[in-house]
Amino acid sequence: MQDKVTFEYAIIRFMPKVEREEFFNIGVIVFSKRKKFLGLKYHIDAEKLAAFSCEITRKELTEYLKAWEFICKGTPNGGAIGAFEISDRFRWLAASKSTMILCSPTHSGLCHDPSIELEDIFEKYVL
């Protein structure tokens, strides 16, 4: 147990009509302070997207999520937020929003490798 570290995660949701509160999961973001890890993985199901919205394309939604990837990586393409400390970037991405792309409440756990947790959570809640 001593070699395990804490991690936090949030499920990324697509909610095209916020007032209807209908959503589907499109990704996962995982953060581990001790491992200095912030990772994001997403998949946009074309059939679900068509059923939920005709107002936004898969390409547009992918562009928004690419911006989230830049923030996770801390690259200049992540803008001012991409320059924040890794924990602040996670908090900013996982913060409560009233937009089409939002996150679930954060959850925590213990793991050996947060990148493996990212894959496991992604397969369980998104695919």
Rank of each mutant, 00 (worst) to 15 (best):
A95P: 03
G79V: 00
I101E: 00
R58V: 08
S98H: 11
F24W: 05
T106N: 07
R58W: 08
C54L: 14
V5E: 14
A10I: 00
E47G: 14
T57H: 04
K124C: 10
K124I: 12
W92I: 03
L102N: 05
S108T: 09
K73D: 10
G109K: 02
L102Y: 04
A80K: 06
V28D: 02
S104L: 04
L40Q: 00
G109S: 07
V5M: 11
E47H: 13
D88W: 05
H112K: 15
Y64A: 10
L40T: 00
S115Y: 08
E119T: 15
C72Y: 00
W92C: 02
K17L: 12
S108G: 08
A51C: 12
A67Y: 10
T62H: 14
I12Y: 03
F7S: 06
A46W: 12
R13G: 02
I116Q: 15
F23D: 05
E123T: 14
D3R: 11
A50P: 08
L38A: 05
S108R: 08
D120H: 14
S104G: 05
P76L: 08
C103E: 06
F122E: 03
L40G: 02
G79I: 00
E119D: 15
S108Q: 10
P16V: 09
F84T: 02
R20A: 12
R34S: 12
F37I: 09
C72N: 03
R34M: 12
E119S: 15
R34Q: 14
E85H: 07
T6E: 15
T62A: 12
K35S: 08
K97M: 03
T57K: 03
R91I: 04
L38G: 03
F24Q: 05
R91C: 05
K35I: 06
W68D: 01
E117Y: 09
E47I: 13
E55P: 05
K17I: 15
D113V: 13
L65A: 05
C111W: 01
V18D: 08
Y64C: 11
G82F: 03
I121D: 06
K17S: 12
I44Y: 06
S87Y: 02
K36Q: 15
S96T: 13
E63Y: 06
W92M: 01
A94G: 04
I29S: 03
L40Y: 00
L110G: 08
V126F: 05
A51E: 15
H43D: 13
K97W: 04
T62C: 11
F70G: 00
E117M: 15
E117N: 15
S98V: 12
K48Y: 15
T57W: 03
R20W: 14
W68I: 05
T99I: 06
I56W: 05
F24H: 03
M100C: 12
S32R: 01
F52Q: 04
K33S: 06
